[in-house]
């Protein structure tokens, strides 16, 4: 939970991320071959969760995933994004693969939502390989303005 507003200002930590990625690329770590295994979490898609006054916004990068192969559900305030990503290829052609960095297979991601989330008020949409889920807040959790009366004198 964070109350600090982060904007697009210079973030030195991003530079470390970039450096790490460049080093990984040099040695080819992080490619599909070592991203295997039952408990390997490296294939779970990256998620953003933002809370504002109206509700919550979940954004998830799912390039190459069809809406048909995607299942989004909320049970007991736990959001589950589940789906399958097929390796894209043209049917009926002979294919020789030279390099494969894009992973394929099934994935699942669960996110615990705060208790203020309203599971009955949810919209989800997919655009350009990015999944966006908007979740409303319970009425009683929305901020209410309370007028403070000032009593004159005493």
């Amino acid at each position: 939970m964070n109350l600090v507003r982060r904007d697009s200002a210079y973030r030195p930590l991003n530079e470390f991320d970039r450096l790490r990625e460049e080093i990984n690329q040099l040695f080819d770590f992080g490619s599909e071959t070592d991203a295997r295994g039952l408990f390997d979490r490296s294939v779970s898609p990256p998620v953003d969760l933002v809370e504002n006054e109206e509700g919550f916004l979940v954004t998830c990068d799912l390039p190459g995933v069809d809406e048909k192969n995607l299942d989004v559900s909320i049970t007991n305030n736990v959001l589950t994004i589940r789906g399958e990503k097929h390796q894209e290829r043209n049917a009926g052609t002979e294919e020789t693969s030279y390099r494969r960095e894009i992973w394929s297979g099934s994935f699942q991601r669960t996110i615990s939502l705060p208790a203020t989330a309203n599971a009955d008020d949810v919209d989800a949409g997919m655009k350009n390989g990015v999944l966006t889920i908007r979740i409303g807040k319970r009425e009683e959790a929305k901020p209410r303005r309370i007028t403070v009366g000032v009593n004159q004198g005493r």
Binding site: L62, G64, N90, E95, E101
Partner: peptide, 27 residues
């Protein structure tokens, strides 16, 4: 500039090279 490095696949199908690059959020 800081660029994000997208993942890609290269393969040969029929008589051409197929390059697939993941760029979520790009139209």
């Amino acid at each position: 500039d800081t660029w994000l490095v997208p993942a890609y696949n290269v393969s040969k199908e029929d008589e051409s090279i197929i390059l697939r690059i993941e760029m979520p959020g790009v139209d």
